Amino acid sequence: MTVTEQPGKDTGCAGCGVKLQSTNKEQAGYIPASALERTPTICQRCFRIKNYNDASSIAIDQDDFLRLLGGIASTDSLVVHIVDIFDFEGSVISGLQRFVGNNPVLLVVNKIDLLPRAVNHNRLRNWVQQQAKEQGLRTVEVVLCSAKRNIGFDRVVDAIEYYRRGRDVYVVGATNVGKSTLINRIIHDYSDLDAELTTSRYPGTTLDAVHIPLDDGKAIIDTPGIVYNHRMTEIVPRSVLQAITPDKPIKPLVYQLDEGQSMFVGALARFDFVSGEHQSFTLYLSNGLDVHRTKLERADELYANHKGKLLSPPSVEELEELPAWTRHSLRIPRGGGYDVFVSGLGWMHANSMAGAVVDVYAPKGIKVHVRRALI
């Protein structure tokens, strides 16, 4: 599989795929007329992301995303679905099978470099396969990788070449799962081009389908990320993203708790150990987050007096941008091997086999549930 050329002004921005225009600075795809002859040709928004880490907000129509996704079923192609292992349930595309029809799906699990190094990859692959099955997703293979750290990347490329069999390749996924990073690895390793897709921490960087031609006349198509507002990463202010998005291996935090104790993750979430025997819980979160423990009877007072200050992020001002917390009452079954998952933030593993009852507070709409343990 060889990349032959990078899309330019004839097909849209080489960074995000949006149609280029030079008339309205406030609309997507704006590029000064004087820059149209540059190679690669990228819009002003992508230029600012690449050079100043500044992602201006552009309204993206989610219906357009779904129409583009739905069109894949009428093609004969390979679908590469990229998910984020740190936020698997939050990043897997619900109902993907009905969008892609009978086309084969290669499930690429990205960002495995964020997990502790001792994690067994065979066990991790089995966990992913079971989760995919529960989602109704039929996959030809599950590949673990880190596009950023070049872990397992050769297997990703080999699998794409094997399963595409001379067909186009559609790369799909939720926002910020690493689609464009993975495609940039292909461009970098399999072509002499110096162009690349725009990548950033910010959700929704790719605004339209980007076609990357291959040497056999087919193409890799990078699609815009599906926006899921049940993920913490979609609703927090951009200044908070750096704190909650891990960029290096997670250091698990272990806490010994008695019933009637609470833990705050900044001012983003709260875990109450409502009932159960004395036991330990392990938190898997970005290393940039602070955890504060208190008695359940004092938790409301602590939050009221210290949210946005001692309990941060977010700041007092940023909290006003978030939905109010809602409570999730959850029962962790006996027998061990369960996590309490908060989409976009991380998870809490119950280490005891005794079971427990916990309440989890998180911004309204965020996905929270009990699952089989990832680690």
Rank of each mutant, 00 (worst) to 15 (best):
G260N: 02
Y284G: 02
L268Y: 03
D300V: 09
Q242Y: 13
L302Q: 10
K251T: 15
F281A: 05
F271P: 01
I250C: 04
L268C: 02
L241R: 07
V254R: 14
F271E: 00
E301S: 13
Y303R: 06
F264T: 04
E259K: 11
V265C: 12
T245S: 13
I244T: 04
R293C: 04
S262N: 08
V254N: 12
L268Q: 02
Q261F: 09
L302V: 15
I244Q: 03
L296S: 12
K248W: 09
Y284F: 15
T245C: 10
L283I: 10
F264M: 05
L285Q: 02
E259S: 14
S286I: 03
Y303P: 04
S275L: 10
L289D: 05
Q279P: 05
I250R: 07
L296W: 00
Q261C: 01
T282Q: 10
Q261V: 01
E259L: 01
A304E: 15
V265S: 01
V240C: 12
G276M: 06
G266F: 02
Q256S: 15
K248C: 11
D290R: 15
V291P: 04
L283E: 02
L283D: 02
S286T: 03
T245E: 11
R298W: 07
A299N: 03
D258W: 09
A299E: 03
E259Q: 15
N287D: 12
E301V: 11
F271H: 00
K251P: 08
K295V: 08
L253W: 11
L257N: 00
K295H: 12
D300G: 02
E297C: 07
A243C: 11
R293S: 08
T245F: 03
V265Y: 02
F281P: 00
G260Q: 04
Q256P: 08
D290C: 10
G276A: 08
E297K: 14
S286Q: 04
V265D: 00
I244C: 05
L285N: 03
E259M: 14
P252A: 10
Q256A: 14
T245A: 07
L285T: 11
V291N: 00
S262T: 14
L253A: 12
S275N: 12
N305C: 07
Y284S: 05
V254I: 14
F271V: 04
I244M: 04
Q279H: 05
L268K: 05
Y284K: 01
H292R: 13
Q256N: 14
R270Y: 00
D247Y: 12
A304P: 06
L241N: 06
L302M: 15
S280N: 12
D290V: 13
H292E: 11
G260D: 03
L302N: 09
P252L: 11
S262P: 09
I250D: 07
S280G: 11
R293Q: 13
E277M: 10
V254W: 01
L283Q: 05
Y284W: 11
M263A: 13
L283C: 09
K251Q: 13
P246A: 07
G260P: 06
L268I: 08
F273H: 02
S262M: 06
P249I: 07
N287F: 06
F281Y: 11
Q261G: 00
V265P: 01
Y303E: 08
A304V: 09
Q261T: 11
E277P: 06
T245V: 15
S286R: 01
E301F: 13
G276L: 06
A267Q: 06
P252K: 10
S275R: 12
N287L: 08
L241T: 07
F271C: 04
G260L: 02
Q279N: 07
P252W: 09
G260M: 02
F271R: 01
